[in-house]
Design a protein around this nucleic acid. Structure first.
Lengths: 258, 258
DNA sequence: ACTTTTATGATTGACTTCAGTCGTAATTAT
DNA sequence: ATAATTACGACTGAAGTCAATCATAAAAGT
């Protein structure tokens, strides 16, 4: 008994809607409400799961709405404490009225959380970090601009030539940037597209602070970002000893997070 | 191996907190994170369920806590059936390999759902519609570009001068646009910034289809978008009679959705 | 009009999860 | 110190869930 495609689509939309209302439904409930067999209900749930609209659980499913950035969240939990410390120190550097760049990555997201917790100042935040944009968008009097670019869901950021072009249209008072590694050679990041964008941001920023947690010290990554000599400020929770041990010499540019 | 009571309470509180963060956890995950056996994890979950703090599901549990519905989702549910019909008709107009503009609004989001359900073609989707971008991202072989601009959370779209600038860098083979109203004068939209962006899109697009559900026919809105004479295609589920009654005359440009 | 495709429901066996029971060991009360 | 309590983990049979396969009938395509 094949059924027209628009009926199937409509039914699945109804299911997605149902799951948004009741955050959890068992398979039996889905069957009853949709008037279909167990097998079809399973297939519909699988289809919606494919579209990332829901999460399947054993015996049912839940709405995926508040878990829109899953991999991002997982990473956020790693070293959450040190990232929060760095974020709070970074927050102190912000002056009301500024135009600020917020980089991709979880460390900068932690800064977004700090700003969202105390959105005192009139700020213009420019970012390619979608979770950060979502978080800050609701917090008057902050204005959020999202950069254009190709959207990569895994890292929840925007990249590519269009993004670099878009940065050229801005002048930032202060840029908060992330990095995947710090060695005596300088800073590293994972993807060359990210590095290209960061160079454009640096060119457009009056001042720049790299936020790097202690775990990144001594690590290299695929793409070289910047020699230490050109790093204006480094904000890290790594101790002076650890930095010295890896021969990361930055004299007075290192701001240690409490 | 009895354990002090305050340890148990603390562990259960930790569990409740975990469930608020990750809306769903399996029993195995709970065991691992709490460092306890399956039996104890079950007992903790049962205790929290008793306190109405969580909902147990087969194989895990969810927090009953998070229930935020942004306005976008609410609007999506209004007239979902007609929007799906329009979306499916729009889907048929897409040719593989094209560069396509997807406008803001729920009707175009419905089109994104249709594309996500059957992402057959290599397409480049450019949009300022964040939910649509999220939905389509990582549906190979589709490439998603998000426009830059100021982020408005209520409508989940990007707008403003930067967005208009960004559109100028593109050439679209086909643009799908929305509108808030259709009268004999032409098309209307709610905000002048949206209209400005749509004009930029029209200038950059080889072809454009306005997707408008029947409820919008006869309505005006604050900002005038385009006279009927300049509308290239109108895709609607409104009947010919309804269009005629409101003196919306478009001769052969109207594509009625099945 | 014909063939091909595909959405559906039934059935199957393998697997997972559940509630209950029990022995053990550590806490709490006396 | 001793006894009573109780939190824990292991085990068990029972119930529930899943993916795969298949026949069928309706829709799509030719």
């Amino acid at each position: 008994m094949k059924v027209p495609w628009h009926i199937v689509v409509a039914r699945r939309e109804r299911l997605a809607h149902m799951l948004r209302e009741h955050s959890y439904l068992t398979l039996a409930e889905v069957c009853a409400r949709l008037g279909v067999s167990e097998a079809t209900a399973r297939r519909d749930l699988a289809a919606l799961e494919q579209e990332q609209a829901i999460t399947r659980t054993r015996g049912g499913a839940i709405s995926e709405y508040n878990r829109r950035f899953p991999s991002f969240r997982d990473r956020l939990e790693l070293g959450a404490a040190s990232k929060t410390r760095i974020a709070l120190a970074a927050y102190e550097k912000i002056v009301p009225g500024q135009i600020i760049w917020l980089d991709g990555g979880t460390t900068c997201y932690a800064l977004a959380q700090a700003i969202a917790a105390r959105p005192l100042a009139e700020l213009t935040i420019v970012t390619n970090n979608l979770p950060a944009a979502e978080l800050l968008a609701d917090h008057e009097p902050i204005v959020v601009h999202l950069l254009g670019g190709q959207y990569f869901r895994r890292s929840s950021i925007l990249l590519g030539g269009h993004a670099v072009e878009a940065v050229r249209a801005w002048r930032f008072n202060l840029a908060f940037l992330g990095a995947e590694g710090v060695t005596r050679a300088g800073l590293w990041n994972s993807v060359s597209d990210v590095v290209a964008l960061q160079h454009a941001v640096l060119a457009a920023a009056e001042d720049a602070i790299f936020c790097v947690d202690a775990e990144k010290v001594g690590r290299e990554a695929e793409a070289f970002l910047l020699p230490l000599g050109e790093v204006r400020h480094l904000l890290t929770d790594a101790s002076a000893e650890v930095l010295a041990h890896h021969q990361v010499k930055l004299s007075k540019k290192v701001l240690l997070a409490a």
